[in-house]
């Protein structure tokens, strides 16, 4: 393996906000985990966890937004301020 482990940063470019009660819906969580190909959502009985370390891998396919009730989820491009 690479012997070069140095500092890594979490999300620099992308943030995702998911409102309640959608966030606590375990069914939706499963669906999100399924649609996102880059592993940004983790499903549990408590609902959806957003994996901070993966956020920057988001390919902006918006499948997750489509899976959520209208307006419940927002993808924020931090470089668009």
């Amino acid at each position: 393996m690479s012997g070069s482990r140095s500092e890594t940063m979490d999300a620099v470019f992308i943030d995702i906000e998911l409102d309640e009660p959608a966030k606590s819906d375990p069914e939706l969580a499963k669906k999100l985990e399924e649609v996102c190909t880059v592993g940004i959502f983790k499903a549990s009985d408590a609902g959806t966890e957003i994996v901070q370390g993966q956020l920057d891998e988001c390919v902006l396919c918006y499948l997750c937004v489509d899976a959520c009730p209208a307006g419940a989820m927002r993808i924020i491009k931090k470089y668009e301020n």
Binding site: E7, V12, F13, D56, L60
Partner: peptide, 17 residues
């Protein structure tokens, strides 16, 4: 190759260093 993805990667490399 997606330019935005490469740009994110290279910029992140700078920031992390």
């Amino acid at each position: 190759t997606r330019v935005d993805i490469v740009a994110r990667g290279v910029i992140k490399a700078c920031l992390e260093l």
